[in-house]
C-alpha cells in the first residue's frame, strides 16, 4: 500500500468506519509509529468535532453534575463498595477461556436474580444496579470476544505469591483483571493498574482487594492509537495518580 492510501485510511479510521480487517491493519501501521498518519488523524478529529456541534443542543439535567461532584468527592469509598459487590462471585482458580466465561455467565445469571430482589425493596438504587448488571454482561461478552488476549501478571518482590490474569481486548481497548494473593493495604492506599507502551505507563484504573487479595476489576476504556506491551500494578494513594510513584507488585508482558 502506498502512503497516500494509508492517509485515506486514516480519515475513515477517524470517522470510525473502517471494517474490522482494515482497522486492524491500520492500527498496526499506526503502532509502527507513523507521525504523518497521526497528524492526519488529529486534523480529521478536529474537523469531525463540527458534527456534534451541528446538533441542536440539549441541556443535561442538573442531577448529573451533582452526582458527579459527589462521586469524585468520595471516589475511594464508592470504589471499595463497588469492588466488594463484584468480588462476591469471584471465580478464581477455574481454568482460562471458555470455562471462565461459562462460569461467569452462570454467576451473572445468578446475580441478576439476587439483584432483582434488591430492586423490589430498594427503588432508589435501581439505576445503579442496572448499570452494574450491564457491566457484568459486558464482562462476559468481553471474554467471548475472539480478539481477547490473556496476560499473566506475576507477583514481584514485595508479594511474590500474588498473581493476576488480565483479559485484554486491544480492539475495544478494554479488559478485565482478576487478582489473587495481593496483600491488603490501608484505606488511604489503593492498587493502580498501568498499561505500558515501551517505557510510557498510562493509568488504567484503581482498585482495592477483598479477602485473599482477590479483585475483579474492569478497566476503563484506554486511549486508542497506543500499542501496549506490558501491564503492571503499583501501590498508590487511594484516588490514583497520573504517573506511578509506589512499589510495583505485579508485572506481565503481552
Amino acid at each position: 500500500m502506498n502512503h497516500n492510501e494509508w492517509l485515506e485510511q486514516a480519515e475513515i479510521y477517524a470517522l470510525g468506519a473502517l471494517d474490522e480487517e482494515e482497522r486492524a491493519r491500520f492500527e498496526a501501521h499506526l503502532a509502527a509509529g507513523c507521525s504523518v498518519c497521526e497528524n492526519r488523524l488529529r486534523e480529521t478529529g478536529e474537523a469531525l468535532s463540527l458534527l456534534p456541534k451541528s446538533l441542536e443542543p440539549l441541556p443535561p439535567p442538573p442531577s448529573v453534575k451533582a452526582r458527579l461532584l459527589a462521586q469524585i468527592g468520595s471516589r475511594a469509598a464508592a470504589r471499595t463498595a463497588r469492588v466488594r459487590q463484584r468480588t462476591q462471585w469471584l471465580p478464581w482458580g477455574i481454568g482460562a477461556g471458555a470455562l471462565v466465561a461459562a462460569s461467569l455467565l452462570f454467576m451473572v445469571g445468578w446475580n441478576i436474580i439476587a439483584t432483582r430482589q434488591e430492586i423490589q425493596s430498594l427503588e432508589g438504587r435501581v439505576a445503579q444496579l442496572r448499570k452494574d448488571l450491564a457491566q457484568r454482561e459486558e464482562t462476559v461478552r468481553l471474554l467471548f470476544d475472539p480478539e481477547v488476549r490473556l496476560v499473566q501478571l506475576s507477583g514481584l518482590e514485595p508479594s511474590p505469591g500474588a498473581q493476576a490474569r488480565l483479559f485484554w481486548n486491544p480492539v475495544s481497548r478494554t479488559g478485565v483483571l482478576f487478582t489473587t494473593g495481593l496483600p491488603s493495604i490501608p484505606s488511604e492506599k489503593a492498587y493502580e493498574l498501568w498499561a505500558i507502551a515501551g517505557k510510557e505507563p498510562l493509568p488504567a484504573g484503581v482498585f482495592t482487594v477483598e479477602a485473599g487479595g482477590r479483585a475483579l476489576f474492569r478497566l476503563p476504556p484506554l486511549p486508542e492509537g497506543v500499542s501496549f506491551d506490558k501491564f503492571a500494578v503499583t501501590v498508590e494513594p487511594a484516588g490514583g495518580v497520573p504517573k506511578p510513584t509506589g512499589p510495583m507488585v505485579l508485572l506481565g508482558t503481552l
Binding site: P61, V64, Q71, P221, P223, G240
Partner: peptide, 18 residues
C-alpha cells in the same frame, strides 16, 4: 445519555493527567 455523560466526565477526571 445521562449515564454516559456521567461516565465520560468521570473518565475525564481520572485521565486528565494523560
Amino acid at each position: 445519555a445521562e449515564d454516559l455523560l456521567q461516565d465520560v466526565f468521570l473518565q475525564a477526571w481520572r485521565q486528565a493527567g494523560s
